[in-house]
Design a protein around this nucleic acid. Sequence first.
DNA 1: TTATTAATTTAGGCATCCCAAAAAGAAAAT
DNA 2: ATTTTCTTTTTGGGATGCCTAAATTAATAA
Lengths: 218, 218
Amino acid sequence: MRQETIENYLKTIYHLSSHNTLIVSNQKIAGKLHLNPATVTEGVKKLHELKYVVYEKSYGTRLTAAGIKLTLDIIRRHRIWETYLAKELGFGWDEVHAIAEELEHVNNVKLINKLAAILGNPIYDPHGDPIPDEKGNIQKSNFIKLSEAKLGLNYIVMGVTDHSTTFLKYLEKHHLIIGARLNIIAIEDFDNSILLVCKKKEVSISSKASACIIVQTI
Amino acid sequence: MRQETIENYLKTIYHLSSHNTLIVSNQKIAGKLHLNPATVTEGVKKLHELKYVVYEKSYGTRLTAAGIKLTLDIIRRHRIWETYLAKELGFGWDEVHAIAEELEHVNNVKLINKLAAILGNPIYDPHGDPIPDEKGNIQKSNFIKLSEAKLGLNYIVMGVTDHSTTFLKYLEKHHLIIGARLNIIAIEDFDNSILLVCKKKEVSISSKASACIIVQTI
DNA sequence: TTATTAATTTAGGCATCCCAAAAAGAAAAT
DNA sequence: ATTTTCTTTTTGGGATGCCTAAATTAATAA
């Protein structure tokens, strides 16, 4: 798979998943990339093999840690170039996106870091979007997936990323509705399942389910 | 044919032909691009269809006017980036080539002209190679192909670009050896053949032959 | 629950870009 | 002038990336 193709898929998946919290459908990816859904099925299969995403048949796709890291690299390059084009080379904010779209594929860490340094290592680009740093740290909301929750902390359920009937029924059964408060009491090393207390009852949530529940620290 | 593939072929042909005066063999192109000669046969056929080169089977390839223009665009981008990377971004001369090799494929006239303006529209890059201007003008030697010679002027034969026995015999017959002095007395609109005087004899040279003879004004 | 609608995947096909090996052609050497 | 050597082209085939149409699967509505 060509590097540019990989990068375009990952960027699309990242943006469609609202900063990497949602599971993304083939149709949405196909729409953004102007590809046929059948093509996207092939594409996400290959990205899965490359370990950049987890793709489950007839279900959807989400980025892996490696996928997120690469995507943030691309976004960093894109936003640093946008900022440099606007601030140092006098381009209008309306012009910079299209040029950055091409420049972002040139992967040279020293070059991007040099441009960033000249700009004073900005954290936001001209459009107000956050620029990841070299390590992939980015200013973001404190919405996380339940699968990323930490032991002992309290959370509130903010939403879900899977709207299938079976999943919603599963949540209802465990009272994991929007607004529900949770306390994490154990995280199993074995299968990454999460043991939590909700409505004074202990519930064990599989890693698959916890990756579809969006929570916020309280 | 992908734009990047086209550009890599044209650059290679340009450089192998010593600034576009020589006919280039498939083998040479294959060597530079690390491709199989069979692949290059296909490649130059397509470039011929695209009117960027004239390819003659079992003979060789040379750039057309359109091919030269595009190539000079690419060389301009490459050399402007090299200069910008070295002078404005503090990269070493040894580092700039590899980065420029990628940046050169981003085709945005305004961007390159902006960088050139910042640099003071340089005519030479850090390596001393000439930078074409926006219109494709480039500092070059006064060696030209006989096919580009002008009516009425005098020239001296400096070399040939085709070393086949049949061609060399043809030249010998007309006394067109290296060092021979020529005066152009007519250029036929019909077939671009050139009528010239050499050793006090009138000789008509076909456009194909005149494209293989390198001359210099005297 | 079943029927309908929508999304996804499979299957088959086409174009591109690459290769190796065989065949053809041109150049060089005897 | 003929053989040998080198280059180029042809042939056939593999991998990729894209498509359409048909089949499957999931979601929604009745």
